[in-house]
Design a protein around this nucleic acid. Structure first.
Lengths: 300, 300
DNA sequence: TTGCGAGCTTAAGTTAAAGTTGCGGTTGCT
DNA sequence: AGCAACCGCAACTTTAACTTAAGCTCGCAA
């Protein structure tokens, strides 16, 4: 049977992106991990990673083993929590991963409420930008992931994971105050002569914008690239461009200088979901409940 | 994180029923396993087994850890098979578990057909009497389990396993040739003065018989206890008693000396099912197909 | 071209486990 | 009563994992 410790090394290396970074995380030296990885490759009889100086990349076989390995690691972590719970010692840690704007707007209230209701649980939060994070949940590094899906973006396969949509967050067209198109509910196709602001190619909102524009048969010129909606709003306020912004962000943003309305044509919205393992540790359902509530009644 | 090797020790010990037997199976000495178990208990902070002279019994915490451990071990085994398959080396082993009469009647044809279609796969078969075997499937010791459920018997929970009923096998009342009740389709309640033959208390067909009789408000006297239907038929043929026998058995048994018919009242049948893991190794679906066919057209 | 840095590997030595052997203790069965 | 089976303890041996140190390759910049 495969050595679980070596499989774990593969998982950590895959998540960290390099042997050196994984070694740092695991408090080992790089040669230790390299040796274990080599032995694992000898065990399975084929290469699992392509080593290069910029880090390592998983081979096809490596990706297959990674998927199983994440489950193995996750089951082991859950096993420990479960048996401790059976012995009377309750789970004391709960780790969340969330994308940036959720971390700012959705999570803090839920964290505060949860912390008050379960003061003995040590909470932790880390930034995870979609579509990443599913593997971290499977392997138990995260207990709960808050992720989003923009229209036109394929969600990752979530083998063995439980995903639940907690919020549909409409994307509104945001224009500078006094913009000629303001109040007219223009379609994207009517705005091809504007300076657009959105994320870099590959970023979710960029993909969503381009795919929605393609649906209307046009391409929109992107003049400014930022994934930070605060920056985007500042640019819009300055009158240098326009963009699509989730309502959740707008609700929390200082007003003035911009006006927002749903674009004409097809309604656009991002879906915000939570992801966790089946058979999650005890505090997860309670936190999920808090998050559902927080989603129903966002700040403001 | 828990040590997977130690968790595996717990799984093997639980399946084998004693440290000594598990050590034998794993080609280790008993003290080695005992030490590992002790360390595992120290790791989780509570007792996992109650040691006694007749073997060991799992504590409550031990059973919790067993369930997770079986999944860990199963995922590790599947991981090895999957990554080998990805590297081009196909899975070459397929282990079946079946209860006695299935092993005699249902499996041989399927094994033969499968062996012809996939000569490179090494097949193995072992006897597993229900309700055992689910843990063996989860932990990957078995790839495929053929099990049954008699009416009135609760099937084991099959967390994370796939179960599929492939045959409903009616239980017929078998009487010696010339028995006064033959041909009259008597109810169980009409046969309280007979000498009944069935398994020992706790054996599935005994439980089914008693529960069916209880449904009719009677208790049936059991004079002979055997779990072997061949023996039961021989006893019936000898005129010393009567019993319920699955049709599948009767179809294959030499006729003469007995007559069989459904008992009056509620229809009784045992369900024959196959059980395997989700994401089973490659040859499993093919074998399942063979078994389904074999169930549809039993020998004779 | 040469020097430097990042990352991975190889090699050698140390240390920490795991496993075996041998013995003793307890229990259940004949 | 005695045998057999099973578990636990302790000392010894062996395996293997980790660390340190040095070497290799490639990209980049002076």
């Amino acid at each position: 049977m495969l050595d679980a410790d070596r499989v774990r090394v593969l998982v950590e290396v895959a998540h960290a992106g390099s042997i050196a970074a994984a070694a740092e995380r695991m408090s080992f030296t790089a040669p230790a991990l390299s040796q274990q990885l080599t032995k694992l490759e000898r065990e399975v009889g084929c290469a699992l990673v392509e080593r290069s100086r910029t880090g390592v990349r998983l081979t096809r076989a490596g990706r297959v083993l990674l998927a199983y390995g994440e489950r193995v690691v996750g089951e082991l972590r859950d096993a420990e929590v479960a048996v401790r719970a059976a012995a009377g010692e309750a789970q004391v840690r709960l780790s969340l991963g969330a994308f940036a704007s959720a971390g700012k707007l959705l999570v803090p209230g839920a964290l505060a409420a949860f912390g008050q209701a379960h003061p003995q649980v040590r909470l932790s939060l880390s930034d995870v930008e979609p579509p990443d994070g599913y593997g971290l949940v499977t392997s138990g590094e995260l207990d709960l992931l808050i992720t989003h899906r923009y229209p036109g973006v394929q969600p990752p396969a979530s083998t063995g994971l439980h995903r639940e949509r907690i919020l549909v967050d409409p994307l509104l067209l945001v224009l500078p105050e006094g913009h000629p198109a303001a109040g007219a509910a223009p379609r994207l196709a009517d705005l091809t002569d504007q300076e657009w602001i959105c994320g870099a190619p590959g970023i979710s909102n960029r993909v969503a914008l381009e795919s929605a524009a393609a649906d209307e048969g046009v391409r929109l010129p992107v003049a400014y690239e930022t994934r930070d909606y605060e920056v985007m709003l500042a640019l819009i306020r300055a009158g240098v461009g326009i963009g699509l912004v989730p309502r959740m962000i707008l609700d929390a943003a200082p007003g003035g200088g911009w006006v927002a309305a749903p674009p004409g044509g097809a309604a656009l919205a991002r879906e915000i979901s939570i992801v966790h393992r089946r058979r999650p540790p005890a505090p997860v359902p309670a936190m999920v409940d808090m998050l559902r509530r927080s989603a129903r009644r966002p700040p403001h």
